[in-house]
Design a protein around this nucleic acid. Structure first.
Lengths: 157, 157
DNA sequence: ATGTCTGCAAAGCTTTTGCACTGAT
DNA sequence: ATCAGTGCAAAAGCTTTGCAGACAT
């Protein structure tokens, strides 16, 4: 799932960040980081909570939220809101940059890559004088499976 | 704020949609549509609720949520989740296509346009066999004002 | 030893749901 | 006259907060 090198690199990033900010290096924070980097898909807080509980590493939801905030700040995690109620998160280091196609009917999420997005970001930064740290491109639509189902519903009307 | 022509066009779109789906043409639905199209910025449900209450047109939150769902389905409204807790909405007809730069520190939102996004959508549709109806591109970063503040904080450390 | 971080439970917010009533068809 | 749609209030779900105790420094 995750190579040892990535694991030690992200730990180092977190350590540097915590030291720079004067935060404590608690075991919970590293356990949460490890768990997140063992995930290969988007996850929500509840799933993370259950997964860690199942592995007999119990942390409270409050700590998960606190720690996720830290990881967001140091760029090790990205937060998404795909239009469902709960936020989804995703590890951010050494993940190939990708964007998301979301089916508005069944909720399916497909990832895709397009280097042209970087050109858009460069232009926008110049115009706005923002410093862009990350982005999310969501394309909402209907997936091919749902399209078929909708067509057959229409046919029955 | 809104020209008479746009107002009558979006009403017509809603009427067509309601008739096609066999839904009733209730006064609440048109009042909500009008109120949304008199907004010029992103809004949340609570703001919409308060605004309509202040104009002595009282509708329940439940009806607002129900109606917004209909308007989303017929493409007259777009839903955003900028990373705050509550969803933000925006009218969708005859709005110039635009995307969003979001300051992760102060929450400021700036809109920008880039036609190259359409090329990306076209490619993604081909590859995934999705039918994309709309999209949201969020660029997260630090705005120039916050950058100044952060620099002065760093200087004091 | 100190003060930050954690865990727990309660509170807060947004959104959804159940039910009786209203009104568009 | 029907039954979809509305309003209200309660419930549900996600996230934050307050406080006592634990532990990294």
């Amino acid at each position: 799932m995750i190579c040892a090198e990535t694991k030690s690199t992200v730990r180092k990033i977190l350590i540097d960040y915590l030291e720079h900010k004067g935060h404590r290096k608690t075991p919970e924070r590293f356990a949460i980081l490890d768990e997140i980097y063992s995930q290969d898909t988007h996850f929500d807080i509840e799933t993370l909570y259950i997964n860690m509980k199942n592995k007999n590493y119990q942390v409270s939801r409050a700590t998960l939220y606190n720690t996720i905030d830290l990881l967001l700040e140091c760029g090790l995690v990205i937060k998404h809101q795909f239009g469902k109620n709960s936020s989804l998160y995703e590890k951010a280091y050494e993940c190939k940059q990708h964007d998301h196609l979301i089916c508005t009917r069944c909720g399916k999420v497909i990832e895709f890559c397009d280097p042209r997005i970087q050109e858009i970001i460069n232009s926008a930064q110049k115009i706005s004088s923002f410093t862009v740290s990350h982005h999310s491109l969501y394309l909402y639509g209907i997936c091919s499976d749902c399209k078929k189902e909708l067509d057959s519903v229409d046919a029955n009307e």
